[in-house]
Design a protein around this nucleic acid. Structure first.
Lengths: 194, 194
DNA sequence: GAGCGAATAGACCGACCGGTCTTATTGTTC
DNA sequence: GAACAATAAGACCGGTCGGTCTATTCGCTC
């Protein structure tokens, strides 16, 4: 039961933070949404900031696992797996409850790069890039480090724009650019005119 | 004098909002930073939210003008002008006072897409894309609409990542991808192998 | 059923929030 | 110098914030 209560708080907090922002979400709103007493929250997490860190850490694990499962569903070829991830971006943006990337939001609301919250968001970005790097290496693509950085840039840019514009076109644009990057990274340089 | 006071408030508010976030910056901190009385702020702007909108509107004008001047400095060829803008991203990220894009931060802190703040941030994104579209059209590049969207995506993604990672590599990655996009958009399709 | 840790409900705290109001002091223009 | 708008300085307001504390109840294990 203890872990279940803790999970309720985490899930409620994540939903409210995503929908309304971190500062704008008061502790009491989380309590009533999770149907939990104040002391339960503070016994489990200690403070609002630590709760935010816990939310980010769990969200990172969940998202990375989700992307890995999408990759697996997209076939055995890591090349196709990368494109599968970018294809899934569109579905994410289409979800009417989509309200952007919680890590981007955390970075925006907590500008001090040394604070635990900003570092948790940074850690997620590192893990995401690492995932792209693994897939790039498996696909035997050229310069997997640079490729992974650029794929991560495309994903971040698309998500950022999708939130601002409420359109799905960023997903398609990012997918198209990812295709171009992968094509170029899998073609011997001497066979490439551009 | 009235406009000068108003400008002091706008400048101070912008700096604090960028450095510490919108919710985290109280009215009184803006007042003491601008050396201005409370009523001066409320007579000029009416409310904190309207002040934020005014800051965003002025920041958008300033940034677009700045990008236009960078483009002009980069030569007369619109192709080079676009690359000039991406080259300038690195300088921005290198600035030790760089703390991300204020419009991305505003979108993150005010998730309701109908509120005036989110709309002001959205308007800036529209204007930025429009600038890329103009330059793309002048350079007689193929499909300037899609190209402009993709260039805007690259710029947003690089800025987002630069803030999270505190590195300048996103600028170089975005510049390289912009080069690739421009090359492809200026090459007849039949002459392109990839 | 006794004992005990976990969870509840909610009063309570000081601090700060955005915003209003009052009073006095400027600086400018006739 | 009179008149007036802009500004200053700061008291003040109700509300909310994150966080603490207490008293009570629940649910599980011997």
């Amino acid at each position: 039961m203890a872990t279940s209560k803790r999970q309720h708080v985490l899930d409620s907090a994540k939903e409210l933070f995503e929908r309304e922002g971190f500062h704008a979400t008061g502790i009491e709103r989380i309590l009533e949404h999770a149907n939990v007493a104040k002391m339960t929250l503070y016994n489990n997490f200690g403070s609002k900031d630590q709760l935010i860190v816990a939310v980010l850490e769990q969200s990172s694990r969940t998202m990375i696992e989700h992307l890995v499962s999408i990759a697996k569903q997209s076939g055995s070829d890591p090349y196709e797996q990368i494109l599968g991830i970018f294809g899934a971006l569109g579905d994410w943006y289409d979800d009417p409850t989509f309200c952007g990337c919680i890590f981007q939001a955390a970075t925006a609301e907590y500008p001090d790069p040394d604070c635990a919250i900003a570092q948790a968001a940074h850690a997620h970005q590192t893990n995401l890039t690492l995932l792209f790097r693994e897939l790039s290496a498996k696909a035997e693509l050229r310069d997997p480090d640079a490729l992974a950085r650029r794929l991560a840039l495309l994903a971040s840019g698309a998500t950022c724009l999708a939130r601002q514009t409420r359109e799905r076109s960023p997903a398609e644009d990012a997918l198209r650019m990812a295709e171009i990057l992968l094509e170029r990274a899998s073609t011997p340089i001497e066979h490439r005119t551009l």
